[in-house]
Amino acid sequence: MAGYGELKNRRREMYPYILEYRTRWSDNDMYDHMNNSIYNFLYDSVVNTYLIKECGLHPPTSPQYGLVVHSHSDFFGSIAFPAVADLALRVNKLGKSSVTYEVALFQQGIDEVKAIGEFVHVFVDRETGRPATNGMKEDIKEGLQRILVKQSKL
């Protein structure tokens, strides 16, 4: 993943898929901003929304599903109810059975990114719970390739 300074300079146009989220009163914590645990909920939601709508995944019955093996978040600013958030999604790395997503959280009407999360799925076969022997299904891979961002080499 990119360095802290590079992440802090992310902009919406760097992400091919954006999902709107209306914050809820219950998202706030006692410090009057969105609780840290909500960010992971939102990262999971935008990733799975994309997989369902754009990759043909049906979580209860698909022969494969994504198992989260890593996640973390970098925070740059707070957001609070009643703000509307834009959850911006891209794929930074696409392997045979794994994918590394980057999710940026923006508050609508504000250009600066509030948080950036990294979320790694390993696609596993439903019957075995083990990494997909032949890699992820082609329709999933094709959908993920549409939001794959080419990384520049240093």
Rank of each mutant, 00 (worst) to 15 (best):
A2S: 12
L7E: 12
L7D: 08
L7N: 11
R11M: 10
R11A: 13
P16C: 10
I18T: 03
I18A: 07
E20W: 06
E20V: 12
Y21F: 13
S26V: 12
M30V: 15
M34V: 15
N35H: 09
S37E: 10
S37W: 00
N40L: 13
F41C: 08
S45A: 13
L51A: 03
L51Y: 03
K53H: 08
C55F: 07
C55D: 07
G56H: 01
L57P: 07
H58C: 06
T61C: 07
S62C: 07
P63R: 15
G66S: 13
V68P: 01
V69W: 06
V69P: 01
H70S: 08
H70G: 00
H72L: 07
F75Q: 05
F75E: 09
I79A: 08
F81Q: 03
A83K: 09
V84I: 14
V84L: 07
V84G: 01
A85C: 05
A85H: 01
A85G: 02
A88G: 03
S98Q: 09
S98V: 13
S98F: 15
E102M: 12
E102S: 07
L105D: 02
L105C: 01
Q107F: 00
D111K: 14
E112A: 15
V113L: 12
V113D: 04
A115R: 03
I116Q: 06
G117I: 01
G117S: 03
F119P: 00
H121S: 05
V122D: 03
F123E: 05
D125P: 02
R126M: 02
E127Q: 12
T133P: 12
T133W: 04
N134D: 13
G135E: 01
K141W: 03
K141E: 12
K141F: 09
Q145R: 14
